[in-house]
Design a protein around this nucleic acid. Structure first.
Lengths: 107, 107
DNA sequence: ATCCTAGGTTACGATTCGTAACCGGAAAGG
DNA sequence: CCTTTCCGGTTACGAATCGTAACCTAGGAT
């Protein structure tokens, strides 16, 4: 269960949906590097876990909107905290990696 | 980066290390279902990112202790929040899954 | 006729994961 | 002696997952 919620795409998707309902293409544009397939799979997983709702408008071309459920909104709090921690500490994480990799180089 | 930090085993490991230094076997016993290999890989990843330190005591049999760095301790706050959310909402998540799977059954 | 749209599925190669076996060297038990 | 036990780690290999790219739907616009 933790595996799915801690998942990279799930976290980014929940962060995206935190400021309101979004359609599929908006999410795809907003989440850097996500493929159509991965976004579809992620959204299905979140829907399955009762975290988002999926609403289809049968127009041509189709329109699909995703919204956080109350349960999803309650998850939004810790998820955003985690996301912010990562962005805030990204430079330090990358520096640590460079140090580690450089030290491992001396083999 | 998010991928590694949101990772299931990383989260559980950081939660384990939150109440102090632990040795390898303690972590393995405390983290339900983790294999030796996965724990090793997870700890190396956390060490690489500067979140834990690894200290080897060259005795026979060997002893290895893992400790959260200051950076790791700062991550501990949002990670524990996420972990607690999951355990608190586990019943509701499982219920949602059952509903979703039952509805999908009607094909 | 052809292209464009938005969301989704399929096929397939590339990673990653998990299980299980094995390793080290000293020390304790038979 | 010979075997077993200790702990942390590595290796091998099959299974699951991920990511890229192609294709699909059907109507409206060019």
């Amino acid at each position: 269960m933790l595996a799915k919620i801690g998942d990279k795409w799930s976290i980014l998707t929940i962060m995206m949906l935190s400021d309101g309902t979004k359609r599929f293409s908006e999410l795809q544009r907003g989440i850097d590097g996500v493929s159509q397939r991965m976004l579809t799979l992620t959204l299905r997983g979140l829907e399955r876990d009762g975290l988002v709702t999926r609403e289809v408008f049968p127009t041509i071309p189709p329109r699909v909107e995703y919204t956080l459920t109350p349960l999803g909104r309650s998850l939004q709090v810790p998820v955003i905290a985690l996301g912010q921690w990562v962005t805030a500490n990204l430079p330090e994480l990358e520096a640590a990696r460079r140090r580690f990799d450089a030290a491992a180089e001396e083999a």
